[in-house]
Design a protein around this nucleic acid. Structure first.
Lengths: 194, 194
DNA sequence: CCATTTACAGACCGTGCGGTCGGTATGTAT
DNA sequence: ATACATACCGACCGCACGGTCTGTAAATGG
């Protein structure tokens, strides 16, 4: 055959990129088709409609990438330092465009949570998974941290701040505000230690 | 006349509500017209196009409301306590729907900053104004706070976390996550004191 | 009283969207 | 060789959107 699996992957990757940059609703199938160099028939052979394509992008591209991104820093020996290094590396290494573009999960959360149940439950599951990941690893090193901390609360706090910072950057078109918030976030994180 | 000014205000208020709930792009003029009980001719008599209507909503509804919301807590004698009370009151008094709906400024920032320059500069101006408001008032009481704090950085951090928390709530459809983040935010704020 | 402006009404238009459907070429099993 | 499933093509459809344009009743100035 003409390698259907590769066609499917190409659709997923390009769709992921388009949705990341433009959002789900603003992403047009025509644009995806043009970039893929395929026809509408090809796309609708692999995906039953736009929503299902969106779900597939979330599950097969965003979700794995998201976990692969957060897991290493959080599961390192020192999660506090791991997260600080993780955030700092973003400030340094990511381009201005990448930061302004924001986290796909947060973008979709804002755009689609209130519109489509299918997206909402997937996003919620991802957020809970991330929260559990962070909270359990903070618990793991709780001896090195101050007493009486609510790790789930802290985990949600960290993620909120991180997502809020990239949201903030979207209006300024530069990394400055992002850097500032990340700096303060790292200061906050270090304060959790004894 | 048939009170043109009142018609204009009605359009602005209903548009503000629609845009807040659905976002700018997803808000259809037809829907606004139906809720206002007016015709398309009326709307296009007062506003040259959808964008200009959006700008007017931002400047005449969102911006004043935004300042009126943040100014009192921040300009109180104790801004730290003022902000804590301000956030806590939100957790208690706001309905689940209101929280999930999010802050109009943050919503528009996410949706429109990358799409339209007119929106972007207005949102940026608003964010800078808020940042200045918070930072100067923290500076005002800096004697009561820990030394070597970057107040602008802290101000951006606070707003980021707040906006991030309402973003987080959108996928869970309840106040629980919002409450958690707000609690931790208040804990952080109190830590700023000597 | 009349002319002109104001403040709307509503039919209409072009565009771009997601989605459908009949057709076609390529591979595979018998 | 034949039959059938797979993988894809691209014209077409209905729809909802923002926007335009002509018409008209109410207010206002002379």
């Amino acid at each position: 055959m003409r390698d259907a699996e590769q066609t499917r992957k190409k659709i997923l990757e390009i769709s992921a990129d388009e949705i990341h940059k433009k959002g789900f609703t603003a992403t047009s199938l025509s644009c995806i088709l043009a970039r893929c160099g395929i026809s509408k028939g090809a796309l609708y052979y692999h995906f039953s409609n736009k929503m299902e394509l969106g779900y597939a992008v979330f599950e097969e591209v965003y979700a794995p990438a998201f976990i692969a991104l957060w897991q290493p820093p959080v599961e390192s020996e020192d999660p506090i330092q791991g997260l600080c290094d993780f955030f700092s590396a973003m400030s340094k290494e990511m381009t201005c465009d990448e930061i302004v573009c924001g986290c796909p999960l947060n973008n979709l959360c804002q755009e689609m949570s209130g519109v489509d149940e299918g997206f909402r439950i997937r996003i919620l599951a991802m957020q809970q998974q991330l929260n559990l990941l962070i909270a359990t690893n903070l618990l793991r090193v709780s001896k090195q941290l101050k007493p009486d901390l609510d790790f789930s609360q802290i985990a949600y706090f960290i993620v909120s701040t991180f997502h809020g910072s990239s949201s903030l950057s979207k209006s300024s078109l530069n990394k400055e505000l992002f850097d500032k918030v990340i700096k303060e976030l790292c200061r906050y994180l270090q304060q959790l230690k004894r």
